[in-house]
Computed example of a mutant assay.
Amino acid sequence: MNNNLVPLIKKAKAGDEAAMTTLYESFKPLLLKNSFDTSKKMNHDCYQELSLQFILAVKAFDLDKYLDD
């Protein structure tokens, strides 16, 4: 995964579906990891909700707040 996600985030926020897909695929292992319950069973509803929240978080992320000029 590229350490500098800023260009991808900018493109994804502007509606670039390929950029959003690249970001999503980069974080997919983390989303999957957090979708298992305590009995190690995959919770598909959780995965779907995490995926949705990830996309919404990317769109709402305020780059200006975290970038040094």
Rank of each mutant, 00 (worst) to 15 (best):
1 M>F: 11
2 N>D: 14
2 N>L: 14
3 N>V: 07
5 L>G: 00
6 V>C: 00
6 V>N: 00
6 V>S: 00
7 P>R: 06
7 P>E: 11
7 P>F: 08
8 L>E: 04
9 I>M: 09
10 K>W: 05
10 K>I: 05
11 K>D: 12
12 A>R: 01
13 K>G: 02
14 A>F: 12
14 A>L: 14
16 D>H: 11
16 D>M: 13
16 D>T: 15
17 E>G: 02
17 E>P: 05
17 E>S: 13
18 A>T: 14
18 A>H: 09
19 A>S: 10
20 M>G: 00
21 T>D: 09
21 T>Y: 07
22 T>E: 13
23 L>T: 00
23 L>E: 00
24 Y>N: 00
24 Y>V: 03
25 E>D: 10
25 E>H: 09
26 S>D: 11
27 F>Y: 08
27 F>H: 03
27 F>N: 00
28 K>C: 03
28 K>L: 15
28 K>V: 01
29 P>D: 03
30 L>S: 03
31 L>M: 09
32 L>E: 09
33 K>G: 01
33 K>V: 02
35 S>L: 08
35 S>F: 04
36 F>P: 04
36 F>L: 06
39 S>Q: 14
39 S>R: 14
40 K>T: 12
41 K>M: 11
41 K>L: 10
41 K>W: 06
43 N>I: 04
44 H>R: 10
45 D>K: 13
45 D>G: 11
46 C>Y: 06
46 C>W: 05
46 C>I: 11
47 Y>P: 01
48 Q>P: 04
48 Q>Y: 07
48 Q>W: 04
49 E>G: 05
49 E>K: 15
50 L>S: 06
51 S>P: 05
52 L>M: 11
52 L>V: 14
53 Q>S: 10
53 Q>N: 13
54 F>Y: 09
55 I>M: 09
55 I>Y: 06
55 I>E: 02
55 I>L: 02
56 L>I: 13
56 L>F: 10
56 L>W: 08
57 A>D: 10
57 A>I: 06
59 K>C: 07
63 L>T: 02
63 L>S: 04
65 K>S: 06
66 Y>E: 10
68 D>M: 13
